[in-house]
Design a protein around this nucleic acid. Structure first.
Lengths: 158, 158
DNA sequence: GTCGCTGCAAAGTCTTTGCAGAGAG
DNA sequence: CTCTCTGCAAAGACTTTGCAGCGAC
């Protein structure tokens, strides 16, 4: 099993991400704006699991001079999701969160006390998922798995 | 692996479900009302994956004489969820759906074309989930897994 | 009878959209 | 220059809440 740390090492650098984004925009006759840049940047320079509002606040804090509306955050997240650059996660009552999807596939372990999200991958589970889809005659396009519980820190607090 | 059909056989009968619900209400000095009955009934007599609005419509159709407001549906679903009688699922853009949680644990395979939901359980995956939680020092309380793709019927249509 | 429950409508959230001006290419 | 993007505010979708009357116990 691999965990979050490994992913950090594998995460493609910001430069690559940015040029991919720029190429994509050019390809579709869309424009590369300062707002789109800071949104991508915000997603990159965070733990990667943000609600639209959290992202909006982060941008306001880091780029106070640039006026960026929440509508633009929503629109850009939608754009990024349409092009598979980000993935949206909906964990129960925590609302919809977004993460950069350029990373390798992984699953999530969510602490119900503090909301911390740890990423992991288990090859065995991945294999079985494909197997199950095949058995049910399903053409699998995607999958997600979440484990809910209490993280080590929160257990110690109690 | 087991699938939906097996679950139908394991599903506890409505009578048991109902008496559990009644006992629970009595226990907390809550009242057993006609509205609460038809809501539980609606959840039971369906494929078990309903949005609050779908449930509301179903009730309107099956019990046209009984006035049941959507607010009551929301309130009752909340009540049932608080007492672990139903589970809410949020699958991407499909919105929040509810299912009776008295059934055995299972995971979901969702067709992104027609929205059909098939349930399944894989013991191997269940085992590995516990293992992973242990390795990460996580006290697991719950987990969910979704496989997205195209179901057999929708593949044939194309 | 009491006290919780209900429908209704109003109020909250969260997200999307219309528009006129700003700005990238 | 053109045509997309943006902020703003208004509109939408979904969910929750306050209230006065209703109904379970």
């Amino acid at each position: 099993m691999r965990t979050q740390t490994d992913f950090a090492e594998r995460t493609i650098e910001y430069e690559k991400l940015l040029s991919y984004f720029k190429a994509l925009l050019k390809n579709e006759n869309l424009k590369y704006t300062k707002q789109r840049e800071v949104i991508l940047d915000g997603l990159y320079n965070s733990d990667g699991h943000l609600t639209p509002e959290e992202l909006y606040n982060l941008i306001q804090k880091n780029h106070p001079t640039l006026k960026t509306g929440i509508a633009t955050v929503y629109r850009t997240l939608q754009l990024l999701e349409d092009h598979n650059m980000v993935t949206s996660l909906s964990f129960g009552s925590q609302g919809k969160k977004y993460e950069l999807g350029a990373k390798e596939h992984h699953d999530h372990m969510i602490c119900t006390e503090c909301g911390e999200i740890t990423e992991f991958v288990d090859e065995e589970i991945e294999k079985r998922q494909h197997l199950i889809a095949d058995e049910l005659g399903f053409k699998m396009s995607n999958h997600s798995m979440q484990i809910y519980g209490t993280c080590r820190q929160c257990q110690e607090k109690q």
